[in-house]
Amino acid sequence: MITIVSDTHSATGHELTGRTLNAVRNADLVVHAGDFTTAAALDAFEAESSRLVAVRGNNASEAVEDRLPADRTFEENGVRFALTHRRRGGGTGLELFGRERGADVVVSGHTHRYLAEKAGEVLLLNPGSHAQPRGHRPTHIELEPTAEGFAGRVYDRNGEIVEEFPVEGLES
């Protein structure tokens, strides 16, 4: 399982609770779309995760910026992911970012609000914020492997399913 989170905005720790904490602990891969804020928060995530793929956000301290790139690309279960915190141009900017990297899925953060939406050939995912939802629900995304890619679900921290969606690679 892949657990996707973003926008922790913590000076001291991971700020994980409920279903989100369990999902991070049980994931084969944790993807964080930026804004740990401090190295202490990044260290706390690394301690809870068996494998962490992350980028820095616009509120990263210098210590976090030194450890994490602004964006990255990776593959899991036949699906190519492009990860960033934000891109100018909204959905169009994110779609172009994904197409430039040959990605099936673009994962971003910054808005503190979840999103699972197709933009052309690219699926845009934003897990929202598990820690500082800023008036939205505290959410994260879980991806369970399937033969075609992944079955995706947005969960709130209490474990309620907010939305379900498929995630498929280009060969599917």
Rank of each mutant, 00 (worst) to 15 (best):
A54G: 09
S49C: 15
V107T: 06
T73G: 02
E164T: 15
E142C: 13
T3R: 01
D71F: 14
S6G: 12
L170G: 11
T92Q: 14
V64K: 02
A116C: 08
E100W: 04
L94V: 10
D7F: 05
E160A: 15
V24M: 05
R157V: 15
D28A: 11
G34C: 11
V107E: 10
D66R: 14
T111N: 01
V79I: 12
N58V: 02
E48T: 03
R80S: 11
V105Y: 09
H32L: 03
E121Y: 02
P166I: 09
L52G: 04
P127C: 05
A47E: 14
E75V: 11
E171I: 07
E100C: 04
G135N: 00
A39Y: 06
L94Q: 08
A63S: 15
V55S: 13
L29V: 15
E46Q: 14
G91Q: 08
E160F: 12
P127I: 08
S108G: 07
T17K: 12
N158P: 00
S50G: 14
V24L: 03
D7N: 11
R153M: 07
T17D: 13
D43A: 12
F74V: 06
E168L: 10
V31K: 01
A44Y: 12
H85T: 08
P69A: 12
P166A: 13
A39T: 08
L21P: 04
R86F: 12
E100H: 10
G34I: 06
F150R: 03
T3W: 01
L123P: 07
E117G: 05
E76Y: 05
D35C: 07
P166W: 07
Y114P: 00
Y155M: 05
N77K: 02
T20V: 11
P145W: 10
N59V: 08
T111M: 03
I161H: 01
A33N: 07
L42E: 13
R87H: 08
G149H: 08
R113V: 11
R153Y: 01
H14C: 04
F150E: 03
L21N: 01
T38E: 13
P127V: 07
A40H: 13
A82M: 09
E15W: 10
N59H: 08
R134F: 12
N26R: 15
V167K: 08
V105T: 09
